[in-house]
Every structure is written in structure tokens, then in C-alpha cells.
């Protein structure tokens, strides 16, 4: 037995597409301890979904090892499925069952006894905000409501581990917070282990550990705080009146390490806050660009993600160039 709730070592998954091979997961290793909340993030097509499916035994692996709660993903897949709650990214419930019938179905296949069903179903429906819609067909729910029903269904058997693939896709900001509160409570009360793939960086922030996957490899694996600490420089934020001019201005400025956009705001990484703040203020004023709320803010996962991916891309390109020169 190993002590990890989820573990993978040198995991490789290849797909054969029109005779050539696509390597979706390329020698990935990770370990998630019981009670941890592990967030898997990465650009589109990096291999998050594939990793999750392989670990769960939904896809066969090409090579390497993977297990959940000590059960091998390939050989003991039923043991795993009995203990894990899973939400697929492209989740779709039987659309011609009602909300309640869906809940009963998932309770049934997970062998939840009748007593427990009576207790948990109303709780979960209330959490999903679906209590008054229990007789509506799942196919007639709104997109976000479907996803919430999926969440509720995946928790019906009180799993020890949940593997959630973009569970809050299309869920509104308020419900997203409630969902995370629920996960937090389950973790605190029942020691739930959470493995979550997410495109939301504010969600990654709430994980105890975050893995950044890039082209099938885990390139960063650390706590959010440590990941953010790696990003050099300090972060200034402001809202310019003329977005593209201000963006250009900052990009060309000395002491500016990186510029990112965030909504209508600019996020500027600088080496020296005091020096650059005045520099930016002056430059904006001289160009006649009005601005609002220029201040230093703490780096968040969103900025860290963009910065990390950019640097990864650059280093890959550089390596390719070096390779070509040789």
C-alpha cells in the first residue's frame, strides 16, 4: 500500500491519430496526499483531461504507473470507481431523466442505501439550488444548472476522493463560491481528497497544491504561494483610458519585466515599484492618457500562470532554435 490518495509515475498516454501518434501525457508524475486539494492547471490541450481519465482507469495507459487509494488504475478499476466521485469535463447527464431520477440513478449505481438517500438527496439538491426543479428533465435545465446537478450526483456516495474535470465550467460566480465552500467543508469534516482540473485561476488559488501541466508534462508542482513567489518582480495595476497606447508604452519601458492584461486593467511586472510607478505615471501624463487606481497588488495565480506559460513557450522555442543551430 502506498500512503498517497492519488499517485502517478512516469505516466504516458499516446493516441493514434491517422497513423501518427499524439502523446497527450508524456512521462507525468504526481502524488496527492489524503486530504489535499490538488489543482491541475495548464493551457488548452495540455493533457489535463487525459491525465484524469487515465488515473481513473477510463482510458488505458501506454506506460507508467498510476493508482488511486493504492488501487491500480488498470487492474483495480472497479475498486477505484466505488470510492471516487468524478465529473467529466463534457459532462452530460441522461437528458430524459428528471433531476430527481438522475439523483436516484447515481445513488443506486453507487449502492447508497435508502435511508442515506432520503437524507442526502435533499441536501445536495438544496446545495445545487435545484430543490424546486426536482421534476424538471435534466435536458431542460440551463447549462450551469446541469453542471450543478452533475456536482450533486458526484457527491451522492460520499466519496473519499473526488476527481473533478473543470467542474465549475459555466457555473456563475456566486455558485462557484458556494461550491468551493462545500468542498472546503467536506475536506474539513471528512478529510476528502480533491483533485481538480480548472481553467479558473482563482480556484487554483484555493488549492493546497497546484500542478502546471504543459504538453503532457508537469513543469511546476508546488503550493500557490510558492509558485507566485517564483515570478520575479512586483506587480502594478491600473486602468488606463487608452488601453492599447498604454500597453505599448509600458512594454517599451525600462524596468518593466512583463505586461499582461486583465479585463480593462493593465498588469505590469516591474523590478522596482517606486521607480517604475513614477516612471509610468509620468509617461502616461505626457501622452495624455488618463488612468485610475495605479497601485501595487499582490501577484495572483492568474498572472503567475500567464507568466509561467509564456516563459515555458519561450524556452521551448529557444531549445528548438538551439537544436536547429546544432
Amino acid at each position: 500500500m502506498n500512503q498517497f490518495a492519488i499517485s502517478a509515475a512516469n505516466l504516458v498516454k499516446e493516441f493514434k491519430v491517422n497513423k501518427h501518434v499524439v502523446t497527450a501525457v508524456n512521462g507525468l508524475s504526481l502524488q496527492v496526499a489524503p486530504g489535499e486539494t490538488f489543482g491541475l492547471i495548464g493551457p488548452d490541450g495540455a493533457g489535463k483531461t487525459t491525465t484524469t481519465r487515465v488515473i481513473l482507469g477510463l482510458l488505458s495507459r501506454t506506460s507508467g504507473e498510476s493508482s488511486v487509494l493504492g488501487f491500480d488504475s488498470m487492474n483495480d478499476m472497479y475498486q477505484i470507481r466505488e470510492r471516487v466521485g468524478y465529473i467529466a469535463q463534457q459532462f452530460s447527464l441522461p437528458p430524459n431523466l428528471t433531476v430527481m431520477e438522475n439523483m436516484l440513478f447515481f445513488a443506486g449505481v453507487h449502492s447508497v442505501d435508502a435511508e442515506e438517500q432520503k437524507k442526502r438527496i435533499p441536501e445536495l439538491l438544496a446545495f445545487a439550488g435545484l430543490s424546486e426543479f426536482s421534476n424538471r428533465l435534466a435536458g431542460k435545465l440551463s447549462g450551469g444548472m446541469k453542471k450543478k446537478l452533475a456536482l450533486a450526483c458526484s457527491l451522492i456516495h460520499e466519496p473519499q476522493v473526488v476527481m473533478l474535470d473543470e467542474p465549475t465550467l459555466g457555473v456563475d460566480p456566486v455558485s462557484r463560491r458556494e461550491f468551493w465552500n462545500l468542498l472546503g467543508n467536506l475536506r474539513a469534516e471528512k478529510g476528502l481528497t480533491i483533485f481538480i482540473c480548472t481553467p479558473y485561476m482563482d480556484e487554483a488559488e484555493r488549492c493546497t497544491r497546484v500542478g502546471l501541466i504543459y504538453e503532457g508534462k508537469l513543469i511546476v508542482d508546488d503550493s500557490p504561494a510558492n509558485i507566485k513567489r517564483v515570478i520575479p518582480g512586483h506587480l502594478l495595476e491600473f486602468t488606463p483610458s487608452d488601453f492599447s497606447s498604454a500597453l505599448k508604452l509600458c512594454n517599451e519601458m525600462n524596468g518593466v519585466l512583463e505586461v499582461q492584461t486583465y479585463g480593462e486593467k493593465l498588469h505590469v511586472f516591474v523590478d522596482d515599484v517606486l521607480k517604475c510607478k513614477t516612471q509610468i505615471e509620468d509617461a502616461l501624463a505626457s501622452q495624455g492618457i488618463a488612468y485610475d487606481h495605479l497601485r501595487e497588488i499582490e501577484v495572483r495565480m492568474e498572472e503567475a500562470f500567464i507568466s509561467l506559460i509564456r516563459r515555458q513557450k519561450e524556452s521551448v522555442e529557444q531549445n528548438e532554435m538551439i537544436g536547429e543551430v546544432r
Binding site: G42, P43, D44, L169, P199, E302, F305, R310
Partner: peptide, 11 residues
């Protein structure tokens, strides 16, 4: 919801 499930850079 065009950007649902799209990474921060592509968004």
C-alpha cells in the same frame, strides 16, 4: 459563454 473551459491566455 464562448470562453467556458478556455485557458487564461486564450481567453
Amino acid at each position: 459563454e464562448p470562453t467556458a473551459g478556455v485557458d487564461p491566455i486564450s481567453r
